[in-house]
Amino acid sequence: MSAYLELQAIRKQFGHTNVLNQINLQIREGELVTLLGPSGCGKSTLLRCIAGLADIDDGKIILDNKDIVNVPPRSREIGMVFQSYGLFPNMTVSENIQYGMKMRGASKEERRKRSEELLAMIDMEEKRGAYPQQLSGGQQQRVALARSLAVQPKVLLLDEPLSALDAKIRKSLRTEIREIQKRFQMTTIFVTHDQEEAFILSDRVCLMNKGSIVQEGSPEELYTRPKTEFVARFMGSYNVLTKPEALRLFGQVDSQAERFAVRPESVALLGGDDRQTALNEGKQIIDGSIESVSILGSIIRYAVNAADVKLTIDTLNDGRPLRQAGGGGISLALDRSQLLPLEKEGA
């Protein structure tokens, strides 16, 4: 893999705490990588370091074969979009978009042409003369995006750009961002704390915790093969089991690991006829009882108690009759191949 942007052993401290701890990351040209993690994990700080808005204590940032650590932000050729848009309130939409080109000495004609192209791209030609206060949050963020793209940066950084928007606009805007990113083949780093957002948008996801990247990979890899308990828990409703719990449920466990993860959709609730089929498939069958049921649209989520282990089980809301909580015993089918051993945290 030839890296276009490469972070080598980035380290940063605030006082005595390590905010960024030996971060290594390689990003290909045109790739969209997400930094995902809980708040305070260092993802936004890392982004600010790449942009040059924060200094690093150690390490290298290589962009297009050039170390840019000592280059001031204005010369790094990096664009950035902030959560709170950062539009200039004293300028119109089109002046905002043209600002970067103006600073780089583009001619008036060139600026006007490019800003019209971008306005057309974000479908806001009508608003070219409006001021930022007159726009909705989603519109402001589209203008901010267009403004960053106007100067054709080598890398685009998006710092939780959708977090301030309501759910509906967030969904449509993330699709728009992905389309634009693909069209321009823009090397992009997207920061978010929203797992769903990260999975939908990214070519690759880096999950961060306490200043380190704990796991990176495609959304599918991250979801199906979490390495540690933190990753498994962050991915959503994974069941994390201790070794004794795993033994009680699965009978035997061929691993030295102390913790295990089981995906909620890999456990099946058995109906009357399914028992034999499940046995034939070599699955482990265990009895339990339902403690609560919640319907999440297309998914039904059961909280189940089996062998003194609390399990979350997701089934498709496919029209089969709903099992009621406390409605007597049920049987679960467990697939031993779906029991994922987890590494120790920080190992």
Binding site: R76, G86, N90, M103
Partner: peptide, 27 residues
């Protein structure tokens, strides 16, 4: 949010002085 305006302007290629004059002062 002067800090954010300054950051935006700097990333778009403005020097600090210019960012202050163009973006912070008028606001």
């Amino acid at each position: 949010s002067a800090v954010e305006l300054l950051n935006s302007a700097e990333l778009l290629g403005a020097s600090r002085m210019r960012a202050f004059a163009n973006v912070v002062l008028p606001n």
